[in-house]
Amino acid sequence: MSGIALSRLAQERKAWRKDHPFGFVAVPTKNPDGTMNLMNWECAIPGKKGTPWEGGLFKLRMLFKDDYPSSPPKCKFEPPLFHPNVYPSGTVCLSILEEDKDWRPAITIKQILLGIQELLNEPNIQDPAQAEAYTIYCQNRVEYEKRVRAQAKKFAPS
């Protein structure tokens, strides 16, 4: 494992614990031996107030490669969400998460999670990743928002 990646992720964890947006979660997972795995984080993004996503808490896994922060983490909703920019596998399609697009090593975990929260309610229809959600979003916004509200209710924190 890269010392650069681990040191950056340790800084990220410290900064997150000191200050993070209300309702968001970002925690490194534990290895079988109980030690912390900084390369694999369990996160959760709350649906934004005043949107059909409100009330939901959407679980996301963030996986970092050894060359982080040169390369972005892979962000994957578990379980996958109904959304035009979420692949059926759950992987998020967002330009700041793509090395050859808008990724920059200075982007923080907090910025990534806030960017994904923004994307939930403002899909990028130029870059669809899920045919069904994309089609319904474009053709029947009322039905799309109904499905999103049902999903938010399903993923409401207990």
Rank of each mutant, 00 (worst) to 15 (best):
Q139G: 07
A152C: 03
P88E: 15
A150M: 09
A26G: 09
M1G: 07
G55F: 15
V92R: 02
V92L: 14
N31I: 09
Y68D: 00
A152E: 03
G47L: 01
W41F: 06
N31C: 11
T29N: 15
P72Q: 09
G90M: 10
T135C: 15
S71C: 11
E98K: 14
F77G: 00
V25Q: 12
M39P: 06
K14G: 03
C93M: 05
I136D: 10
E132Q: 09
L63T: 08
Q111W: 14
S70C: 13
I107W: 01
N121M: 12
N31A: 08
V148D: 00
P52K: 11
L38F: 10
S95Q: 03
A133N: 01
Q117G: 12
L94I: 05
E54H: 08
A129R: 02
I4D: 15
P123G: 00
E54N: 04
P69G: 02
P79R: 15
P21F: 00
S89P: 10
M36T: 00
P88R: 15
W16P: 01
T51N: 02
G34T: 04
P105I: 07
L114P: 14
E99R: 10
K76N: 15
A5R: 04
V25P: 04
E122R: 11
K153H: 08
R149K: 12
L6H: 08
M39I: 07
G47R: 01
F64N: 06
L9E: 07
K110T: 05
W103I: 03
P28V: 06
G115M: 04
P80E: 11
P28W: 00
E78P: 03
L120E: 02
P28Y: 00
K49N: 13
K101E: 13
I4Y: 09
V25S: 08
G50W: 05
G47W: 08
P73K: 02
K110R: 12
L97V: 14
I109S: 04
S158R: 11
P73D: 00
K146Q: 09
K146D: 14
K18M: 07
F64E: 05
L63W: 01
I107K: 05
H83S: 02
R17D: 00
D127E: 11
V142H: 13
A131L: 11
L120A: 06
I107T: 10
A44H: 07
Q130L: 12
A15S: 13
G47S: 01
K101A: 15
R149H: 10
T91K: 05
G3Q: 05
T108C: 14
T135Y: 08
N31E: 11
E42T: 12
Q111C: 15
A5S: 13
Y137H: 04
E99V: 11
M39Y: 09
T108V: 15
G47M: 07
D100N: 14
A129K: 02
K76P: 01
T91C: 15
I116H: 09
Y134N: 04
A156F: 11
F24H: 05
S95M: 01
N31H: 11
Q130M: 02
F64P: 06
M1Q: 06
K153D: 15
A133Y: 06
Y87G: 03
F155N: 15
V25D: 10
A44N: 08
I112M: 15
S2G: 15
P84D: 07
Q126L: 11
A5H: 15
S70Q: 07
K18G: 07
I4P: 08
F24W: 05
R17K: 10
S2H: 12
R61I: 09
D19F: 12
K146E: 13
E145K: 08
E99I: 03
C75E: 03
L113Y: 08
K76R: 14
P52T: 13
L63Y: 09
S158H: 11
Q117F: 12
N40R: 09
Q111T: 13
A129T: 02
